[in-house]
Design a protein around this nucleic acid. Structure first.
Length: 961
RNA sequence: AGGACUAUAGCUCAGUUGGUUAGAGCGCUGCCUUGACAUGGCAGAGGUCUCCAGUUCAAAUCUGGAUAGUCCUACCA
């Protein structure tokens, strides 16, 4: 082992060895355990959220592998339809081209090229993270096998009536010219206006108060070109007389009816609402109920059509509709049309008022363009019909969310689920397996050939394939079984279903998790035809945010590439990375400034293990996780600590080579038997270790990686290093230690470390492997890799309560002396003498058995046991139970400082005593609290009382000097 | 508008079924280059557990309310 811990020099070599040795593949032995990776976007890069989730998945995978399970962690990527197409279109745009210039086939070739070029990033990042995925089974959602699964599911759902095509209002992205599903729309509050327009009443009718017009309010004036009614509330007495009458739509000149519908809120605005069924989801429903015409005025870019089109609610076009629109609007963008309409209303004296208004604006999650409700033909999955089994699976406990609170969110959404719009007007994706004849007949099948056979079509009939592709989530919804070979190869599906746990973020619970549950239950059945769940547990991780709680995003410039934390990165490179390739280059200056301020030195190299340990230590059950680089630094130091502890172990278990750092021959550590004598410290650390093992197992069961990390950290640092290794030194350094004593302590020092390494391996795979390998000559281990070794199991036989109590006593005495040293400024280098007084037989035994430990760790040159009759000199005193640890003051101690120290102690003790006596004088506490609680409090009070008396005596003694 | 979640040390967070001297990391103060480690050691300071009320012998923990923040769903045109 190198003298200093250098992660870069150990990580890659172990990973390569593991992968080449096929250690990541299922062993074929033991009960199956499987995890499906949430597939990242193939052309993207991993961010902190991925690193976080993958660390957890890898820890779970390695843990269960070491527990003897037949373990599969399935890797893969998805094709991310819109996101990927968008990137490639941007590349083309740089050359002044659009995808239409290339044509569909050439464009798709270009996307595949881009995938080939960028697709390796993800897998190399995963290798750097140490992910023990079975690379031989890596899958991509556009692979032939997975594409076949997509076609299969589409066709079967269609044949079962669970998938259909229809003309409906969809969320239309006018920038990408595609429909998106409701959950891909982000609603954000924005500042806008509320325009009040006057719509003249037709046929000379007037309102109750004698006006010749109605006032309607709108946030979207441009849609008035498509108005087909004005609605009022049926109970609104101001307007009841007008229901059934008409208004004359300004600019357009169309007569549109006044209808009554209780959708209208009487109290809002004027109580009159313009109804535009083809451009608003609510208006669509109102229009449908009341037979208002469905009038579309926009093209696919949300620019005004030359002539409006009208439809029946069945989707059939109305042939005889007069769609004439006012002059000057054809081809006008929606926002320009808005300005023009407002101006014309104003000019006509029909603009009643304009008010500032805050409204929710729907924007596409990829394009950030304002989404337009638009009438188009789309394909839908009848999710409303598939939801129930998926709800039941969670209700009856087959699938369990961790943390539990997400189940409510799941039910809430599932109970109000909408049919899922799955078609996308893109080129990159799975093309829909549907064909049309020229009369609009629809034929669905796995191929054109199959369609012709299935529907017995005349060979001469011309068929045209649907040009649209499917939502990426449609293919990811099949992920748990399509990756395993469905529909042809069912062996793996049967073996690894249901998978054990899904580790993912709560932000995709609807996009992915819910849909996977529905699809898997529907398509994967057991021998009795009952649906099989995709996974037993869903571990929902929090969202990784930056150190200020901000969501990490490219446009904020606060994303962190996990590899940069592993390898380190200098400030200039980091700034360059964050400000290049931006969608909004104007933000670059601000990002640069923030980056320089937050990380003036860039990131230091921390190594994968430190990063992974940091991530697991953050994995509490909370919903937001703020990632602070400071935390990483702390755990990098922890790796260093472990490394150096291992070096100390080696120095005491291998022969020293004169004038060299190289290790000599392994010493006798009991590998081959021989008599062994274990010191108190040996027995203590073994006992403590059993409890640690039990804790670690428990935390795996409960997915509390944060608590597990903390437990391991404090054991290694505070118990193994700070106490145990220090306590091993007196044995190693004492020339009088017997062979049996040396063997016993060497055995323990090595044995506990070796087991610790296995215990921590799932979180810190590299450093644990490196040290474990170097210990082989003294640990007696012969396996090829730590990752194949059994995970440590607690053994109650090694629990030694007496040793634990004795060692607590030893620690107490040492800490007492150290406290006096610290408070009274006695140099650590100065050896001092102490007296032990007021002790009982147990204290005496402990003192006699552990004198060497006390002398070593408290830096004492002499310890003297005082019997009751002996007179103690003026001393500074610490208490360990009844036992007084006395440091004589002569020549050492400043009386004033000592008095101050005691005063502080007295105050603390009095405060505590008052609190407890308050309880004990309370009748009700005595009578109602359980006896053991009362007894405990009484004991405490007694101890505090005698301590107080003692402290006062000391003060008196000092005063007498 | 409805719902969920959060509020604990200067910062980031733990605190399991009510009984702890309320913990950790980072930061801070003092001392120390002792033969694993200064990426270190030892000692220490720092908290009316957001506020109010209630239940209880006992509340950071349970209940109700308030305030602040985050998120989700829906939406008044």
């Amino acid at each position: 082992m190198e003298k200093t811990y250098q992660p870069s020099s150990i990580e890659t070599k172990h990973y390569e060895h593991w992968e080449q040795s096929n250690y990541f593949q299922p062993s074929g032995n033991g009960a199956p355990y499987s995890i499906m990776i949430p597939p990242p976007n193939v052309t993207g890069t991993l961010h902190m959220g991925h690193a976080f989730q993958q660390t957890i998945m890898d820890a779970l995978t390695r843990y269960h592998r070491m527990m003897g399970r037949d373990t599969l962690w399935q890797p893969g990527t998805d094709h991310a339809g819109i996101a990927t197409q968008m990137v490639v279109e941007r590349l083309l745009a740089a050359d002044g081209k659009t995808r239409h210039d290339l044509g569909r086939e050439t464009f798709i070739d270009r996307v595949w090229q881009w995938k080939a070029q960028s697709g390796g990033t993800i897998s190399s990042q995963m290798r750097r993270l140490g992910d023990s995925v079975d690379w031989t089974r890596e899958r991509f959602t556009m692979d032939e096998g997975l594409s076949e699964a997509v076609r299969e599911v589409f066709v079967r759902l269609f044949d079962e009536g669970l998938l259909y095509r229809g003309k409906r209002l969809v969320n239309w992205d006018p920038k990408f010219h595609t429909a998106i599903s409701d959950i891909e729309v982000e609603n954000k509050e924005e500042q806008g206006s509320l325009w009040h327009f006057r719509y003249p009443l037709a046929d000379g009718v007037t309102t109750v108060d004698g006006k010749s017009y109605l006032v309607v309010a709108t946030t979207r004036p441009e849609t008035m070109l498509g108005d087909s009614a004005v609605a009022v509330h049926p109970d609104d007495e101001r307007y009841t007389a007008l229901v059934g009458k008409y208004v004359e739509l300004p600019l357009v000149g169309r007569r549109i009816p006044i209808i009554a519908d209780d959708y209208v809120e009487m109290d809002f605005g004027t109580g009159c609402v313009k109804i535009t069924p083809a451009h608003d989801f609510n208006d669509y429903e109102v229009g449908k109920r009341n037979g208002a015409q469905l009038i579309n005025i926009f093209d696919k870019s949300a620019a005004v059509l030359p002539v409006a089109e009208a439809f029946e609610y069945s989707g059939k076009a109305l042939e005889d509709f007069d769609g004439t629109l006012p002059d000057g609007y054809a081809g006008l963008d929606r926002f320009d049309a808005r300005k023009k309409i407002v101006a014309e209303f104003d000019a006509l004296g029909l603009l009643d008022s304009i008010k500032d208004h805050t409204l929710m604006v729907p924007r596409g999650d990829r394009s950030h363009d304002v989404i337009e409700p638009w009438l188009t033909d789309q394909w839908y999955v009848a999710a409303t019909k598939m939801a129930q089994p998926a709800i039941d699976a969670v209700k009856n406990g087959d699938i369990e969310f961790v943390p539990k609170m997400y189940e409510n969110e799941y039910y809430n959404w599932m109970n109000n689920i909408q049919d899922w719009c799955i078609s996308r007007q893109l080129w990159w994706g799975h093309q829909i397996p549907a064909w049309y004849d020229k009369d609009g007949g629809v034929y669905v099948g796995r191929s054109e050939e199959e369609v012709r056979t299935k529907y017995t079509l005349d060979p001469s009939l011309e068929l045209r394939r649907d040009e649209d592709v499917l939502d990426t989530w449609f293919s990811s919804a099949l992920w748990t079984f399509s990756t395993l070979g469905w529909p042809h190869d069912m062996d793996m599906v049967r073996r690894f279903h249901p998978t054990d746990v899904l580790v993912t973020g709560f932000d995709i619970i609807f996009f992915w998790v819910a849909r996977m549950i529905m699809m898997t239950l529907h398509f994967i059945k057991d021998e009795n035809g009952k649906g099989i769940i995709p996974f037993k547990k869903i571990y929902m991780t929090g969202l990784i945010r930056d150190e200020n709680g901000q969501k990490m995003s490219k446009s904020k410039g606060n994303v962190i590439d996990p590899i940069d934390l592993i390898d380190g990165i200098d400030l200039e490179t980091l700034v360059g990375k964050r400000t290049s390739g931006m969608m909004q280059p104007q933000l670059a200056a601000k990002i640069e400034k923030n980056t320089r301020k937050s990380f003036p030195d860039g990131f230091a190299e921390s190594g994968t293990d430190a990063l992974r340990f940091t991530l697991t230590s953050l994995a509490s059950l909370s919903r937001d996780i703020n990632f602070d680089v400071k935390r990483l630094e702390g755990y990098r130091n922890f790796c260093n600590k472990l490394w150096n502890a291992a070096r100390l172990v080696q120095m005491n278990t291998f022969a020293q080579v004169e004038g060299s750092d190289e290790l000599g021959a392994p010493l006798d550590c009991g590998q081959h038997g021989g008599e062994m004598e274990f010191s108190l410290a040996d027995r203590w650390i073994r006992s403590r270790f059993q409890k640690l093992e039990a804790e670690v197992h428990k935390h795996y069961q409960q997915y509390r990686f944060d608590l597990m990390s903390q437990t391991l950290y404090s054991f290694i640092w505070d118990e193994y290093c700070s106490w145990y290794l220090e306590l091993s030194k007196p044995v190693f350094w004492n020339e009088n230690s017997t062979d049996a004593q040396l063997r016993g302590t060497r055995k323990t020092v090595v044995g506990v470390l070796e087991a610790l390494l296995r215990l921590i391996h799932p979180i810190m795979p590299f450093i644990s492997e490196e040290i474990w390998q170097s210990l082989k000559p003294v640990s007696g281990e012969t396996g090829d890799s730590i990752m194949l070794e059994p995970f440590p199991m607690p053994n109650n036989a090694s629990i030694d309560s007496a040793a634990e109590a004795d060692l607590e006593w030893v620690k107490g005495v040492i800490m007492g002396v150290r406290n006096i040293r610290g408070e009274l400024n006695i140099a650590p280098s100065k050896a001092i003498s102490v007296l032990l007084a007021n002790g009982d037989a147990e204290d005496k035994r402990r003192y006699q058995e552990n004198e060497a430990f006390l002398k070593q760790l408290a830096k004492l040159d002499n310890i003297q046991w005082l019997e009751a009759a002996d007179q103690a000199p003026a001393s500074s005193q610490a208490l360990v139970g009844h036992l007084k640890v006395l440091v004589p003051m002569a020549g050492l101690i400043d009386v004033a400082a000592e008095k101050a120290r005691i005063a502080k102690e007295v105050e603390k003790t009095q405060k505590e005593l008052a609190r407890i006596e308050g309880k004990l004088t309370n009748e009700k506490f005595i009578s109602k609290a359980p006896d053991d609680v009362v007894a405990k409090e009484k004991e405490k009070a007694e101890a505090l009382n005698s301590k107080l008396i003692d402290l006062n005596a000391q003060v008196a003694q000092l005063d007498a000097l």
